Simulated scan of single mutants.
Amino acid sequence: MGQSLKKPVKNGINGVAETSKKSNEETYLKSLSVLEAHRFIQGRKFCLAQNASLALPRDNEEAMRINKVTKLIKVLFGSNYSAPVTEFLTCGGAKILEIGTGGGLWLSEMSIEYPMSIFLGLDITTIFNPMYRVLQPGGWMEIHGTPSEIIGAGPATRRFMLAVRQCLQINGHNPDIVRTIPEKLRSLNVKNIQVVEKPLLLSRNGAPDEQIDDELLLRTVEAFRVIMKVAIGCTDEEYDELKRNVGLEAETTKMHIMVIRTFGQKDAE
């Protein structure tokens, strides 16, 4: 966390070496204070504060994409959560903190479904490290995410995901951090840890209507455009070609990504 985006000399998506470019993308490399935390780059809004390191935009378009993912994950698991807290939420008086509110859909739906409980959402301006400090004894913590791997991906989609992993690693992120969550929770004395995994379909081929958004994969590719151009090095033309090929593969192959929910209970002490 807290690192500005780095731009090493690397091969582009199509294997062409890129030299440094004098353009407004260089703004993305500059460390900014919290008061200068947002900049528009190629029409997308990014959070560039020193106390945060985000690869994707923070604008309405990204919020809509996140909300669509939230809807699909709810359908996939049959609920907005997996931890055994239904009775706790229904009885009232429960206090729920969502860290990383994103588009706000999860928080909105939960507050409507359980009006007797209290819901609070925090996003990029406040970061808890570790989150364990905000969990009361006996309380439950649930974290969800996806590894940066698409199963059944075609050649273009594999190139895209390889570039995504490079971008994340360049900026100090672990592309597979979701797999390390159980170990991290155990180190914080969280008990009763459980992991639930389900495949989220990314291509229409054989997918039920309620479990697929035809544009989700392409929206994700578009969300990575700016960081990909800066950190990996590629032109808009190269990126457009990659996006078209990913779209074709989404129509002709069966691809999916694993969605992982990890939850556990803080020791009652």
Rank of each mutant, 00 (worst) to 15 (best):
E36I: 00
V34C: 00
W140F: 11
L135K: 09
S117H: 11
C234I: 11
D236G: 04
D123H: 08
I232V: 14
S82G: 01
K243R: 13
I177S: 08
S33G: 14
L97P: 04
Q194T: 10
L29A: 10
Q136M: 07
S23F: 07
N24P: 08
G93Y: 12
M228S: 06
P130L: 10
L168Y: 09
M116C: 14
N245C: 04
E241V: 04
V34D: 08
P182I: 13
N24G: 06
T253F: 15
E210S: 11
A153V: 13
N189S: 02
T27M: 12
S82D: 02
A94S: 15
K74P: 00
F77T: 04
G92C: 05
I260P: 02
A94L: 06
G172H: 08
N67C: 07
T126N: 04
K191W: 02
L162H: 08
R58Y: 00
G93H: 13
V178A: 00
S4P: 02
E197L: 07
T90D: 02
H38L: 05
F263T: 03
G92Q: 01
I112W: 03
K254W: 12
T146H: 11
N189Y: 04
K266N: 14
C234V: 14
K243Y: 03
L105H: 13
G139H: 09
S203C: 13
M258W: 09
E18R: 06
L76P: 01
F224K: 02
E36S: 14
G138H: 04
E215V: 08
T235W: 12
E222W: 04
K198T: 04
D209F: 03
T125Q: 09
E25N: 12
D236S: 03
V34Q: 06
A153D: 13
I232N: 05
A231D: 03
F263W: 09
I124S: 13
L216V: 11
L202Q: 11
R165P: 01
N14Q: 08
K95C: 10
A55I: 15
T146P: 00
A207Y: 04
G104D: 10
I212C: 08
V230D: 05
N11P: 00
P57Y: 01
G233W: 15
T70G: 08
F128C: 01
S20P: 05
Y114K: 09
T253G: 13
L185A: 09
Q194R: 09
E222F: 01
R204A: 13
T86L: 02
K68R: 12
K184E: 08
N11F: 15
T220R: 04
T253K: 15
Q194A: 06
E98M: 10
F160Y: 12
N14S: 06
L89Q: 00
K266R: 15
A223Q: 01
T180D: 12
I170R: 02
